[in-house]
Nucleic acid binder design. Structure first.
Length: 467
RNA sequence: GGCCCGUUCGUCUAUCGGUUAGGACGUCAGGUUUUCAACCUGAAAAGAGGGGUUCGACUCCCCUACGGGCUGCCA
């Protein structure tokens, strides 16, 4: 790979499903890499064995796949690399930028408690920092980084600008635990370096951590990546997005039938802007996306706007692609799949269907006239439309439809003539006709339905209804 | 407690010292209409508060308030 190639990564820990926030972080990384012919890598941060679950890893992969965020190469398991992390910790030890600390967790806990009680700094200052380690050859120890205590450090963040921290705020964080396993802070840096990551785009919650991680880059003499810390996403109440807000998992949105394209568009626009552009394609997003367009403040998740965007994407989607998405939706929600006849009907009705739905279930509901079979079961509202009076009218209308050539124009004309002769408005029979054809009060226009199901089926359904 | 970050209509945002502070979602009022949706027209709606700097601040600086993050042998 060339020295200038962009390499981004998404590094979730498999302690839960893929959340909306994580999905957006992944999306931004993906957009940035894909928009520049770079690589988008995946790393599973599974060093916390107790909380890591392979099922979660799979769920995260599935979520990314649903969103169309493809990654390069195999996902890297952080756990599999712990020997390399330990190797770096030892290298730092040898170089004198880290040291062995023999303080016990109990000692540290006591210190912190006391510090808190006095409202003093709880940063632990290890007494072993400048003591030769060989004094305690057999005691358990951790390896700590030797952080500077004077001066200050300024880090440049593409989103936040220059951020300065006094070095005395830095603690000698643990690099390697007493059991020899690496701590997250070490693992991230080593992995990002080894994976040649050029741009670290992640949640705002890591901004302060960047200073601590920077210590490792410096100690090892590694070039630091470009940093971009994204403001977090909040729930509709302005609080941090959590379980309380209901759906937080990306998969939940898939199950609710939001199209992936709409989700991508919405998530891209949440915290990022390109002038006044609101609705855009993936190609445009890739072309336009840049770190400079990222906002600095947290954004609230707004389902209404998501729905609006989803409606726009459904309306402009390619019919065949939409059909595939519907089929995938039926699979993930455990519903029965489409027969080839239904799929065919759906495809033919798609133009009229897609401009009236914001989600896939909504589209499916309006496609009821295709998915159902004779005799059409009318729901309560639809049944109420099928009055005795209408049935009588139907008795007159149906025979006339035998002789109509089955085109939109001919149908419209013949219905208009029919209504005119009886001095009624089409609106008076549209509802009942809809009920007879679809068994619902909500559907595409009656002409659209008639054309899709065809002459024979139309007449059959109307005959059923008039009986 | 300490440190770091943030704050423009209800919400997402534009603005990069000079605008009647723009757009979008939502809301409200009309229109269109065969249901739903879509669509069209219009309206209400914002620079957290206080100090500076400047001829001129949403924009730069400081303070306060509020929100968030970090402060672990979690990630």
């Amino acid at each position: 790979m060339s020295a200038t190639e962009v390499v981004t990564r998404f590094a979730p820990s498999p302690t839960g499903a893929l959340h909306i926030g994580g999905a957006r972080t992944a999306l931004f990384n993906w957009l940035y890499a894909r928009g520049r012919g770079g690589k988008f890598l995946l790393r599973i941060e599974d060093t916390d064995r107790a909380r890591s679950d392979p099922a979660n890893t799979q769920a995260i992969l599935d979520g990314l796949t649903w969103l169309g965020l493809d990654w390069d190469g195999e996902p890297v398991s952080q756990f599999a690399r712990i020997d390399r992390h330990a190797e770096v910790a030892r290298a730092m030890l040898d170089a004198g930028s880290a040291y062995k600390c023999f303080a016990t967790q109990e000692e540290i806990a006591i210190f912190r408690e006391a510090a808190r009680a006095e409202k003093a700094s709880t940063l632990y200052r290890s007494p072993w920092r400048d003591v030769p380690a060989h004094q305690h050859p057999d005691a358990p120890f951790v390896i700590r980084v030797k952080a500077p205590r004077d001066g200050q450090t300024t880090l440049h963040d593409v989103v936040q600008g220059d951020v300065t921290l006094a070095n005395d705020q830095l603690d000698d964080m643990v690099l390697l635990r007493s059991d020899g396993t690496p701590v997250y802070m070490l693992a991230v840096v080593v992995d990002d370096h080894d994976m040649s990551v050029t741009h670290v785009i992640r949640g705002d919650d890591h901004l302060t951590n960047a200073f601590r991680q920077n210590l490792i880059y410096q100690a090892m003499g590694w070039p630091a990546p470009v940093l971009a810390h994204l403001p977090l996403i909040f729930g509709p109440d302005g609080k941090k997005l959590s379980k309380r807000h209901g759906a937080t998992a990306a998969a939940a949105y898939q199950a609710m039938g939001y199209p992936a394209a709409g989700m991508r568009n919405y998530l891209t626009r949440l915290g990022w802007s390109h002038g006044d552009d609101e609705f855009f394609s993936d190609a445009q997003a890739r072309e336009w996306f840049d770190l400079s367009g990222i906002g600095k403040s947290p954004a609230q998740f707004d389902t209404k706007k998501l729905e609006h965007l989803c409606g726009q994407h459904i309306a402009t989607a390619d019919n065949a692609a939409l059909l595939h998405e519907i089929e995938a939706f039926l699979v993930v929600t455990g519903q029965t799949g489409l027969t080839s006849g239904q799929a065919d009907g759906l495809l033919r009705a798609m133009d009229s269907l897609k401009e009236r739905a914001k989600t896939i279930p909504e589209l499916l509901e309006k496609a009821r006239f295709i998915l159902t079979q004779r005799p059409v079961q009318a729901d309560e509202k639809a049944a109420a439309q099928l009055t005795a009076q209408f049935r009588a009218t139907l008795g007159e209308l149906t025979p006339q439809l035998q002789n109509v050539s089955w085109t939109r124009h001919a149908l419209e004309t013949s219905l208009a003539v029919f209504c005119e002769a009886r001095e009624i408005k089409f609106g008076q029979i549209a509802g009942p006709l809809r009920a007879a054809l679809a068994g619902r009060t909500v559907s595409p226009s009656v002409f659209d339905m008639m054309l899709v199901i065809g002459q024979d089926e139309t007449i059959a359904r109307l005959t059923d209804a008039s009986a």
